[in-house]
Design a protein around this nucleic acid. Structure first.
Lengths: 213, 213
DNA sequence: GCAAATAACGGAGTACACTCATTAATGAGC
DNA sequence: GCTCATTAATGAGTGTACTCCGTTATTTGC
C-alpha cells in the first residue's frame, strides 16, 4: 500500500512499457527518420518483443502519430494562447498558426509522413483519431477567429467552409514543405498568402449576405 | 517488311507487354481495389514474371498512377473544353472541374490512393511525374480563368496563389470523398463553396491592388 | 494460500512488395 | 548464317510490417 487506490501491477507495467515504447519511437524516428527506422529496432530499444509493440500501436504509422501528436498538441495550444492576445483576423491567424508552422519545419520527412497518415490512414485507430481531433480543434479555432472578426456577426455564416479551406491549405502546404518540393521554401509566406485570400473572400461574402437582408 | 520504319521485334514486344500490364492492373485494381490486388496477381494476369512487372513500373503505386493518369487526363481535357464555352470565373471553374470531380466518384478507394500517391510519393518516378504534370496543367487552367475573368487584367497578380489554393482544396477534398469521410457526400457543393471563397477573395484583392495604383 | 480465470507477452511464422544474379532473346557486324 | 555485345525476362531470395497462438504473469474467488 504505497498510496491510495493502486492501479495494480498489471496496469503499472503497461504504463511503463507504453512510456518506454514512446521514448524509443521518438528517439529512432528523430535519429533515423520514419522510413529507415524499423519496428524491430524500436521494439529492441524499448526492450519489448516485436509482437508486444503492436499491442501498444496497431501500426508503425500509429507510433509516429503517437509521438508527434504531442508536439503538435503543444504547438496548437501555444498558438491558441498567442492568438488571444491579438486582434484582427489576419494577425490572430498568424499568431495561431505560427507555432504549428515552426514546429513543422523540424524533421521534414516525419512531418510529411505525419500529414500523410493523419489524412489517409484508418481514422479509427487510436492515435490517428487523436491527430484528427487536433486538426478539428484547430479548424474550430480558425472558424472562431473568422466569426469574431466581424462585429456584425450572425453565427454560422459559412465560417466553417472558410475554416475548412484554410485547414486543407495548411495540411497540404505543410506536407509539401516536409517533402522538400517548392524550391523557395518560404512556408510561412506561401501559406498566409493563400489564407489571406480565403479570409478576404469570407469577409466579402459575409458583407454581401448582410447587405442583402 | 510489313510497312515503313519498323520499331524492331524487341520494341514491339515491350509495347505489347506494357499494354498487357496496363490492362491487368486496370482490371484488378477496379475489381478488387488497390490494397487487395497483389502485384503477383497482376503479373500473372498480364502473363509476365513478377520481376518483369517491376521493370515496367518501379512500384505498385506506379501501376495505379499509370492506369488512372489516363482517366484524369481525359477528364481534365473535357473540362478545359467545356470551360471554353462558358463565361464568368465561377461558371467556367464549374465547367472545368466538373468532369474531374465526376470521374473521382467512381472507385473511391483507388481515388484516395491516387491522391495520396501523387501528393506524397517520389516525384521522380515516371508515372507520378506525369500525374504531377496533370495537376500542374489543371492549376494553370485555373489561374488562366481567374485572370481572364477581370478585364482590367495586369498579368501575374497573384492568380497563381489563388490557383494553388484551389488546387490544394481540390486534392484534399477529392481524397477525403474517396476515403468516405464526410457523411454528407456532396462533393461538388463542398468543393465549390470553398473555391468560390477563394475566387471572391482573389477578385477583392485584385480590385484593391488596382485602385491603389 | 490455492485454483481458476483473465490478461499480457513473446517470438516464430506469414504475406507481400521489391531486388538481383542468372539466363534468354535480340540485333549488329562480318 | 554465326558470333558477340546488349538489353530484357525471370523467379528464387530478401527485408520488413504485422499476426497468431502457446506461454507466462496477474488478478479474482474461495
Amino acid at each position: 500500500m504505497t498510496t491510495d487506490s493502486e492501479p495494480g501491477r498489471r496496469e503499472r507495467n503497461k504504463q511503463l512499457k507504453q512510456a518506454r515504447i514512446f521514448q524509443a519511437a521518438r528517439e529512432l524516428f528523430d535519429r533515423r527518420g520514419y522510413a529507415a527506422a524499423t519496428t524491430q529496432e524500436i521494439a529492441d530499444l524499448a526492450d519489448v518483443a516485436s509482437g508486444t509493440l503492436f499491442r501498444y500501436a496497431t501500426t508503425k504509422a500509429e507510433l509516429l502519430l503517437m509521438v508527434y501528436n504531442e508536439e503538435y498538441r503543444a504547438a496548437i495550444e501555444r498558438g491558441i494562447h498567442a492568438a488571444a492576445d491579438e486582434s484582427g483576423a489576419e494577425r490572430r491567424l498568424r499568431a495561431l498558426l505560427g507555432p504549428l508552422l515552426t514546429a513543422s519545419r523540424t524533421n521534414s520527412e516525419n512531418t510529411a509522413v505525419y500529414q500523410r497518415e493523419v489524412l489517409f490512414g484508418d481514422p479509427d485507430e487510436q492515435y490517428r483519431a487523436a491527430g484528427l481531433e487536433l486538426s478539428r480543434q484547430l479548424q474550430e479555432s480558425i472558424a472562431a477567429i473568422l466569426l469574431d472578426d466581424d462585429p456584425r456577426v450572425p453565427p454560422t455564416t459559412g465560417s466553417e467552409v472558410a475554416a475548412r479551406a484554410i485547414s486543407d491549405i495548411l495540411h497540404l502546404e505543410i506536407a509539401r514543405s516536409g517533402l522538400g518540393r517548392d524550391s523557395s521554401e518560404d512556408l510561412l509566406g506561401l501559406v498566409f498568402a493563400q489564407i489571406d485570400l480565403v479570409v478576404i473572400g469570407f469577409r466579402a461574402t459575409l458583407s454581401a449576405t448582410l447587405s442583402a437582408t
